[in-house]
Write a protein that binds this DNA or RNA. Structure first.
Length: 593
RNA sequence: GCCCCAGUGGAGCAGCUAGGAGUGCUCAUCUCCCUGUCAAGGAGAAGGUCGCCGGUUCAAAUCCGGUCUGGGGCGCCA
């Protein structure tokens, strides 16, 4: 070893010891007669004191030089102690210094005081990852994954790997395809999830399976979505919904206790319909109120034309009350209207509640009873602002107010500060009782919300072919602070029920066999009842780290256009490489940058 | 596919609303000074095609159109 200690580990108990350290020059403070270097390694910073008289090489040291220092740990004198550093009570008096590797001036500053353009960070990710926050995030990621593995190991789960080169699935997300050289004209797909394989493992009798596994989806990116991402995939046999919920919840509590040092409260279980009614979302952020209020009763006899026609069409009128914003200037109100329209609303009615009545463009259309009922039902008091959305499609009302709710919470300071040690900060919740189908307005048909192997709540089975909206699935999500963390279900293992579901979806037997034949075949041989769930690792780590973006917890992520500025992927390839794969590109000529 | 925000010396920003000489700030870089700093300090220097293309104008970082890139969102993600 070139070193005896890690720089950031040194403490006053090491005083008097001769040490050898390796690391990078974090900062340099040259006083002429004495030079201070903050030496950084994976464990942190330590101050090294160098005398340029005896060590002339010290004059050459610059930011990010990789160096080796030998010296003695000495106690800092009173008044020179730095309480900001873990190593702040000591320093290292250098007896020798060696430059292991020089560095060009870095393209950006590696401190935590400057936000740097993300493109530049990603282009030089190896430097960006030297920064303290990235070192901290990737360490946390390791600790969380490690705790997850320990938990499932103790619970008797086997971690079993599944193929990365597999069969394309026609439904769901777009696949990343891999051409086959050996089979001209055929393609593998990278897995969107190991869904079908883990169900096969259940048929094989591995009744508790899990895997930390990479998944791939060729869809547009978001702050919480990358084209390749990591799932904690798990599946269990001989279980009912409560069993999967129990072990998953216990896993999260265990991991949070071990890694975050926090005892989590029990996760509330919120039916999907309630989540939509109260929060306009199936992944509600429970850290603040701003709940949706129904105004259907208040305006049931209204003569205000807009509201009248919405109610006559079977639509909904709902509102959000923002405390203390009743005097919001016109410009900001207009911005709210624009936000609502961007979310799909026809318009937005704002009502300021003041000491002498309501202030709203709609006020003149309201009766006195409606004014009173509105304020009451919206839960508003003097000084508050009520935002009303009315639409003859309930789904639009939910989407608009649900979307506004999160934006308003941010804008008006209702979102609590990141406070990991506070158990109350972590608002985990189960969302349960999802409908099986969703009405597709454009195609005028019922689409499945989950994959076609999702179980059906028996009591709602009778509606399968008569009133699909009433069919409830045995599926469940975990949400945390407004993010969907996990999604899972009890699967169908009965062939008759599976056939009924395919019928309801308008999928013929031949079609089902062609697409999922291998799974349906497997189910002929004594398939056990089974179910599982798949939490997203990147999202778990991001939330745990207090980040709003999963790129901050992924070592080498891609940009919003699925580009990797570090490697330049995706790149063009040689004609010869294409030819061997029997491929010919029809794309216009690509200019590599 | 659509909407919004941003692009100005190496980094982070201001300047743009109301057009008038590449103007300013913080940091980094280089030279010099400095023995207790810790995001060290002081003096000085160097460094820019204002993302790109086009238009309006006597004159464009600034106004207009297009385009590219980065970010946020809608659609999409069974």
């Amino acid at each position: 070893m070139l070193r005896s200690h890690r720089a950031g580990d040194l403490r006053s108990e090491h005083t008097g010891e001769k040490v050898a350290l390796c690391g990078w020059v974090h900062t340099r403070r040259d006083h002429g007669g004495v030079i201070f270097i903050d030496l950084r390694d994976v464990a942190g910073l330590v101050q090294v004191v160098l005398d340029p008289q005896s060590l002339p090489l010290a004059e050459d040291l610059r930011s990010e030089y990789c160096i080796r220092v030998e010296g003695e740990v000495t106690a800092r004198k009173e008044g020179t102690i730095n309480p900001k550093l873990g190593t702040g009570e000591i320093e290292v008096a250098a007896g020798s210094v060696e430059i292991l590797s020089r560095s060009e001036t870095p393209p950006f500053q590696l401190d935590e005081y400057h936000e740097t353009d993300e493109l530049l960070r990603l282009k030089h990710r190896y430097l960006d990852l030297r920064r303290e926050s990235m070192q901290r995030n990737l360490k946390l990621r390791h600790e969380l994954i490690s705790a997850i593995r320990r938990f499932f190991d103790a619970e008797g789960f086997y971690e079993i790997e599944t193929p990365m080169l597999t069969r394309a699935t026609p439904e769901g997300a777009r696949d990343y395809l891999v051409p086959s050289r050996v089979h001209p004209g055929r393609f593998y797909a990278l897995p969107q999830s190991p869904q079908l394989f883990k169900q096969l493992l259940m048929v094989s009798g591995f009744d508790r399976y899990y895997q930390i596994v990479r998944c791939f989806r060729d869809e547009d990116l978001r702050a919480d979505r990358q084209p390749d991402f990591t799932q904690l995939d798990l599946e269990m046999s001989f279980v009912e919904q409560d069993d999967v919920l129990e072990v998953t919840e216990r896993m999260f509590k265990n991991v949070w206790k071990e890694v975050m040092g926090v005892d989590l409260a029990d996760f509330p279980r919120i039916p999907f319909s309630e989540a939509m009614e109260r929060f306009g979302s199936d992944k509600p952020d429970l850290r603040y109120g701003l709940e949706l209020r129904d105004l259907g009763d208040v305006f049931s006899d209204t003569e205000a034309r807009v509201f009248r026609s919405v109610l006559d069409d079977g639509g909904a009128i709902k509102a959000i009350t923002i405390p203390g914003q009743g005097e919001l200037p016109r410009k900001q109100l207009d911005a709210l209207v624009d936000d609502a329209k961007a979310l799909g609303a026809g318009g937005l009615v704002y009502v300021g509640v003041t000491g002498d009545g309501l202030k709203s463009p709609m006020d003149k259309f309201f009766s006195d009873a409606e004014r009173k009922g509105l304020v009451e039902s919206a839960g508003a008091s003097v000084g508050d602002l009520i935002l009303i959305v009315a639409d003859n499609r309930k789904s639009v009302v939910y989407k608009v107010l649900g979307g506004l709710r999160t934006r308003l919470a941010e804008r008006f300071g209702h979102v609590p500060e990141y406070d990991p040690a506070n158990p109350d900060y972590w608002k985990f919740a189960w969302v349960v009782d999802f409908p099986w189908f969703d009405w597709n307005e454009d195609e005028e048909r019922w689409d499945p919300i989950h994959h076609p192997f999702t179980g059906v709540v028996e009591e709602t089975l009778e509606f399968l072919e008569t009133d699909p909206a009433k069919v409830i699935s045995k599926s469940y999500d975990i949400t945390l602070n407004g993010w969907e963390l996990a999604s899972g279900s009890i699967r169908i293992h009965d062939r008759d029920m599976q056939s009924g579901v395919f019928r309801a979806l308008g999928i013929s037997e031949e079609e089902a066999n062609e697409k999922f034949g291998f799974l349906l075949d497997a189910f002929k041989y004594g398939a056990p009842p089974h179910g599982g769930i798949a939490p997203g690792i990147d999202r778990i780590v991001a939330l745990a780290a207090g980040e709003t973006n999963i790129r901050e917890v992924i070592a080498f992520p891609k940009t919003q256009t699925a580009f990797d500025p570090l490697t330049g992927a995706p790149s063009t390839v040689d004609e010869a490489q294409l030819k061997i794969l029997n491929l010919k590109s029809t794309a216009p000529a690509v200019v590599e940058d």
